[in-house]
Write a protein that binds this DNA or RNA. Structure first.
Lengths: 224, 224
DNA sequence: GTCAAAGAATGACCCTCGGTCAGGACATAT
DNA sequence: ATATGTCCTGACCGAGGGTCATTCTTTGAC
């Protein structure tokens, strides 16, 4: 019976080799610039073999992203929920978020690009849904924390959970994406951290102060 | 002398025809799915002719985006600066931003994708810079408004202009990008508007309340 | 009207690259 | 030794971006 197991191990090994090679190349040169032949060569396989393990170039890419997102969620769930208050948890969450993506700008850029992209022609419905669901976990976590805050009385009972969640998510992502468009210098990192944490602080302060969400006049689209 | 001018006009006409055809196709099917042959056909030209007017498929795309960004800035500068206070101007700005991009989700998605993308292989340095500069105008506008607020005493003198600018930009973009990942229903639009306007309100409130920006401890990365 | 020069447009062609598949190499089983 | 898998290979295909020799059109001098 050892033979079959060895085979399985070897197969898994090849799979990993492909992913490892692909990851390096993708993060170095971007999706489009990397050819499957290059991936194959780096993994010491033929092009055909790559297609024994993955059904398309895009699938390889997606698997890598999925892996990283999961890694992120794992880290979040380990750290975030130790806060003694909802505010503290949000702060922790932001901290983890920032740490994670500042450590790997490229990953954030890629995830963002992926989410925003429309051309997922070669990706199975299932794989696509998987990625979407995984991405949404981030948003759901924020929502959970806010809900806890409302439940514990830290945030007012009429808090607009969805809206707050959305705004905070925007704050986080916006802050980090800004990092992409400015220089790479170390000093920027402090700026980004500070931007997001200040924004968060302002927002939470607003929440606690019981400021009602804007209700917009549907006719004019203006607050009123 | 009329001949040369007529030629110029005709050339300009062809150019426009290509852009118009390309715009329709790109927004319908996405960058990758559209072929240059399709653009040529729709513009009633041969493929070769398209390359007389543009140097690459990517350049066509970029021209279209550039045009739209400029249109956006025009609208912003016309409306935003009529606010009687910095807060009001920020609100106006957000309103224009939301209107513009909710009216054309696809445009926002495309711009975002473009900014985040790394594979601009076929684009001239100059064209790329042009797009970056144009995109940055949005951020600069926010900064201007905040500066005015500080100058007029509406915001406290030690306001961290860059940070606030970044956070607000993040809030705006994050809010709208969220819209991309949720459904298309009308009702969502109100949600997005409300999310952003509330976030803005909270943030401005925080600003006015004189809350100092977080200074982060470089060692721990935590506020302190 | 004729014709040469300039300008504009064409589409056959080239090349790269994602993806396929007939066939080979090697291990295992009998 | 032979049969049966399993795994891998690389020549091949088709799609699509980009090129360029050729052809068509316009123009203005004679």
């Amino acid at each position: 019976m050892g033979i079959e197991e060895r085979r399985k191990r070897e197969k898994e090994g090849r799979r990993s080799a492909i992913l490892k090679a692909a990851r390096k190349l993708f993060f170095e040169k971007g999706f489009k610039s990397v050819t499957v032949a290059q991936i194959a060569k780096k993994a010491e396989l033929s092009k055909g073999a790559v297609y024994l393990y993955f059904s398309s170039k895009e699938e390889i890419y997606s698997r890598i992203l999925l892996f990283d997102i999961e890694k992120f969620h794992e880290r979040v769930s380990r750290i975030v929920l130790k806060g003694e208050s909802a505010s503290k948890m949000l702060e922790n969450f932001a901290q983890v978020y920032i740490d994670f993506f500042l450590a790997d700008r490229e990953l954030f850029r890629i995830l963002m690009a992926y989410m925003v992209h429309t051309d997922h022609n070669n990706l199975s419905e299932e794989m696509n849904n998987c990625l979407i669901r995984s991405t949404n976990k981030t948003i759901d976590t924020i929502e959970d924390i806010i809900r806890q805050g409302v439940a514990s009385g830290e945030f007012p009972p009429h808090t607009a959970v969805r809206q707050s969640r959305n705004a905070l998510w925007g704050l986080l992502n916006g802050g980090i994406s800004l990092h992409l468009f400015t220089g790479k210098e170390e000093s920027r990192e402090q700026m980004i951290r500070s931007t997001i944490m200040t924004g968060l602080d302002h927002y939470i302060h607003g929440l606690k102060e019981n400021r009602k969400p804007h209700i917009l006049n549907p006719a004019t689209g203006l607050a009123g």
